[in-house]
Write a protein that binds this DNA or RNA. Sequence first.
DNA 1: GCACGCCTGAATGGATCCAACAAAGGTATA
DNA 2: TATACCTTTGTTGGATCCATTCAGGCGTGC
Lengths: 234, 234
Amino acid sequence: MSSSGGDSVISRLRKLISDGEYQPGDRIGEVRVAQQLGVSRTPVRLAFRTLEQEGLLERAGKRGFRVREFSAADVLCAVEVRGVLEGLAVRRLAERGLDDSLDELLSFWIQKGRELLAKGHLEEVDVGRWGDINHSFHEALVAAAGSPVIGDAIARNNHLPFAAADSIIIDTEALDREYRKLLQAQLQHELVLQALRCGEGARAEMLMREHAFIGLRYVDLLGMEPVSLSGTDE
Amino acid sequence: MSSSGGDSVISRLRKLISDGEYQPGDRIGEVRVAQQLGVSRTPVRLAFRTLEQEGLLERAGKRGFRVREFSAADVLCAVEVRGVLEGLAVRRLAERGLDDSLDELLSFWIQKGRELLAKGHLEEVDVGRWGDINHSFHEALVAAAGSPVIGDAIARNNHLPFAAADSIIIDTEALDREYRKLLQAQLQHELVLQALRCGEGARAEMLMREHAFIGLRYVDLLGMEPVSLSGTDE
DNA sequence: GCACGCCTGAATGGATCCAACAAAGGTATA
DNA sequence: TATACCTTTGTTGGATCCATTCAGGCGTGC
């Protein structure tokens, strides 16, 4: 019994790491994790291999693993990687043409975004809803790119902390500023769809690349604290 | 005893798959693989998780794995992914400037390539040597991109069959044609270095993207058989 | 006093055992 | 005869056990 459902060890361990329970650079042992999660060593060993492939862990010498540390530069780089990959996806999409059903789907999520932002300000509950809308839009784009390869590459990249498209840091203290950010994101979504409809592959690609930065650079511009991962207390 | 060294199960299994021992789409069982490799189920299970992350295996329903199948379109897509990622790497490199030691290293491998191709034709032993030179050049570029994130993404992408930069198919029957291909590749290497020295990020990126296609599209142009993976006998 | 080597302990990797679940086939009933 | 349920079997996931290896400490010899 217990809540040991299959891959739940992986996600629980991932959460432990991102919560800072295991510090970046720390050696991470099978026995301790197994005890902490209340499971045997076997699923932990399996999870370690998976998380190593995901990039959250790295081999510590010949023996064991350690939690990988990511600098702010790494996070920026991961965001750029997502940008070029999603850019590739939309360029291919523009080149092969946008079919009606996908146009409809994208329009649907754009309409949802419009409705969410229509009231002119942002409330705290809207944050999660925007996350869903944004995720669905991106997912639809990537899924339609013609091959699962791009989606896989993006998915693997998204395992890195703060790299995923839906990991925009929302400062609930400054919903006003966040609202302007989401307005910008929404505009970029609409521009991408516009470019796709016109078959403008290069433009769509560049828009998507720029769009990736919205969670990072735009934050800096607005004077917020840049993301830092390693060893910061909250 | 036996030759069961650590990750060797992974590479042996990878080889079994790429050799067509297990057909794409086939369900792959732990017991059979374990017996075939002469090891217990445990390392096989670990290898399955790793290969799943690498994209060679996929979950078959709720239970077990199956060998993933790649279409020609997927291979093309993986090559394009490598192109945009390596393009990103060199653009970042151009933007932050090329330091002397890297310039020296890249020049070294370019010189090696020049020497290899200087005699005006290609011999069979040169194929492997070109592979090494090419690999070193690409590796040096990616390693210098400022963050391991890009390199990781490329490495993961390279696990897909025929996606790696050093998996140019060399037709030893037509070394003359292959020679012209490698001349082109060498020229592209030199152009990239030129662009890097001038800080021309966009140009370097586009050159690198185009360079990625040299193993595929150029093959088609020359009338060779396009790569096909699934179920073809050799 | 320093260095080399041995010994001990701990942690990981591999093998085996047990349980749970899914798929398939057979039988009974409507 | 067809369908539904039950049984049986095979495969996978989890737990435990054994061997191997790496690291650290201590002792002895030079």
